[in-house]
Write a protein that binds this DNA or RNA. Structure first.
Length: 196
DNA sequence: AGCACGATTAACT
DNA sequence: GTTAATCGTGCTC
């Protein structure tokens, strides 16, 4: 439950997307819901980087949906898919360059009670091990799209974590790349942490 | 106005 | 392994 309350600031997210995607492993995602902290340690991310990345939503350029990715780093990019699911990303790099990181998996830490309630009746191991599961567990929906996660607000942000001693990072292909052509189909822009 | 599809999940067989 | 759920988005007519 220990947390040092040091937030990740905009400089953290203005770096190259692959660097940030790996650096987010072991950090804490925090949602304050009705004054109550719900948080988890990030253990899986995926990078989506630029219009040339044919898996990135921004491959079709600037649209009402993708415009957030062209905005300032540190903002949330939250989108809806399959008619049911919300996905949380954080925008990276400089304003004008479209890139973001999908938060794919976290280990629940604070607010277990609320997470349990929202994810019932799923088993504990399946509470937050998927991007849509995270949004359900943390009550994140489209109203968070474009929210500045580096601003002074008390709803959604990242913090440093002092819980992690050792992180082993594995990389692999991104998930759900059904019709995406190579090299984007197989490029290892998925980051997984094994935590000690 | 109509259509195909999706950075998924859960419940099946 | 297979499949339904369910609707916003962007493209075509």
């Amino acid at each position: 439950m220990a947390h040092n309350n040091i937030r990740l600031e905009r400089d953290f997210f203005s770096r190259p997307t692959l660097i940030v995607a790996e650096a987010l492993l072991g950090a804490r995602l925090v949602r304050i819901d009705n004054g109550q902290r719900i948080s988890g340690i990030i253990v899986e991310t995926e990078a989506y980087c630029g219009e040339t990345d044919l898996a990135c939503h921004a491959r079709i350029g600037r649209t009402p949906r993708t415009v957030v990715m062209y905005g300032p780093p540190g903002h949330a990019y939250v989108y809806f898919t399959y008619g049911i699911h919300w996905m949380l990303n954080v925008v990276t790099e400089t304003e004008g360059f479209p890139a973001a990181i999908l938060i794919r998996s976290i280990i629940p830490d604070e607010g277990i009670e609320l997470i349990s309630r929202r994810r019932h009746p799923q088993p504990t191991k399946d509470w937050t091990n998927g991007p849509a599961k995270i949004c359900q567990a943390l009550n994140i929906t489209g109203s968070f799209n474009d929210v500045d996660m580096c601003a002074d607000q008390r709803k959604l942000f990242f913090e440093e974590s002092n819980l992690i001693r050792n992180i082993i990072v594995k990389r692999g292909a991104r998930v759900g790349m059904n019709k995406v052509p190579e090299p984007w189909y197989s490029i290892d822009w998925r980051f997984l942490a094994t935590i000690d």
